[in-house]
Amino acid sequence: MSADVWLPIPPEEIEGLPEGPRYLFWDGGEDGTQPFPGDPADCAVYVVPYMKRGPVKARPLPRMRALRVVQTLTAGVDDVLAHLSDLPPGVQVCNARGVHEASTAELALTLVLASLRGVPGFVRAQQQEHWQGGFHPALADRSVLIVGYGAIGSAIEDRLAPFEVARVARVARSARTSARGPVHPLTDLPGLLPHADVVVLSTPLTQDTRHLADAAFLARMKDGALLVNVARGPVVDTEALLAELKGGRLTAALDVTDPEPLPPGHPLWHAPGVLISPHVGGPTSAYLPRAKRLLAAQLRRYAHGEPLAHVVLTTDGTGA
């Protein structure tokens, strides 16, 4: 079996890599045209470059016919799911659970607090040397709904705990019980949305969650509620959100958008009541040490023939 492992982090910078595989560095390069470090046909484990455009990540996949593992460095694997037809059968696709929870949860809380407390307005006023006071809602005593209660959703609730929120409701694909309380299935959303002051989206992008926050979803949110998206842009129907923002009924804080990157001139840039950050939930100083630990642990499992962690799916060769 082929033993080449392609890493987007120089292997000499990762402690604890097992002996045996040949480690090759490839991150696509600044413009995405970096030559391949070896023959893609000899690659058994492909660690997808982080913070690269989809076409760059997918470029070697059609030639990786001996591939056994695809390891992303993101919580979502949608960039890989779009290219399943390029993968041979039996490939395990793994996500980066444990890498981005801290950073993304921090940003989610930042977006909530900045939006509720009017920080964007303060920044604009400062630029104009204008002392702008006023009354703003606190996070304390608010009801929060987390849609997508996986590792990141749980980390968000951990950071909400000290802020004296009135209530946290949790939604995931299916019902279960967590350490903090019940987790509702997606089918319960219509009854939960009208009671939430803040709705945080942290769900993976799948066929079931694409445009989950559509016109009907947004219409059920209470007047004056805040929508926060740290998931993926297409989880929200942009046109439906724009209609609510322009009407002033809802506000939003978005780390991800659809389209992304958001092009100049797009109406979302200047919609009232919206705060936009440029998909920076994951890339912080917390990322690299956690990514290195994940890769070392996964590759030790692979080298020793042990079950891999965080397997999202195994391909069957049909592209499904």
Score class of each variant (00 low, 15 high):
S2L: 01
P8C: 06
I14K: 09
E15T: 13
E15Y: 02
L17W: 02
R22C: 06
R22T: 15
R22N: 07
Y23F: 15
E30H: 02
G32T: 06
P35V: 03
G38E: 13
V45K: 01
Y46F: 15
V47M: 05
Y50P: 00
M51D: 06
K52P: 00
R53E: 12
V56M: 03
A58W: 00
R63T: 00
R68Q: 15
V70Y: 03
D78V: 00
D78Y: 01
D79A: 14
H83R: 15
P88N: 11
G90K: 06
N95Q: 06
E101M: 14
L111R: 10
L116G: 01
G118W: 01
V119K: 00
V119H: 07
F122V: 07
R124H: 13
G133F: 12
G134C: 12
R142H: 13
R142E: 11
I146D: 04
Y149L: 09
A151G: 09
G153H: 10
S154N: 08
A155Q: 10
I156F: 11
E157F: 13
D158F: 05
A161N: 05
F163T: 15
V168I: 15
R170S: 05
V171F: 05
V171H: 02
S174M: 02
S174P: 00
A175V: 06
A175Q: 14
R176A: 15
S178Y: 10
H184Q: 14
D188G: 03
L189P: 07
G191I: 08
G191C: 09
L192E: 13
A196T: 09
V200M: 14
T203E: 00
R210D: 03
R210W: 07
L212N: 04
A213V: 15
D214S: 07
L218H: 06
L218C: 04
A219Q: 15
K222S: 13
G224A: 10
L227G: 02
V236H: 00
T238S: 12
E239F: 02
A240G: 10
L242A: 02
L242W: 10
E244M: 01
G248D: 02
D255N: 06
P259T: 09
L268Y: 05
H270E: 15
P272E: 03
G273V: 11
G273E: 08
V274E: 10
I276A: 04
I276D: 02
H279K: 12
G281P: 08
P283F: 11
P283S: 10
S285G: 13
S285L: 12
K292M: 10
R293N: 05
L295T: 14
A296K: 09
A297L: 08
A303I: 04
H304S: 14
H304P: 00
T315R: 11
D316E: 13
G317P: 09
G317A: 10
T318S: 13
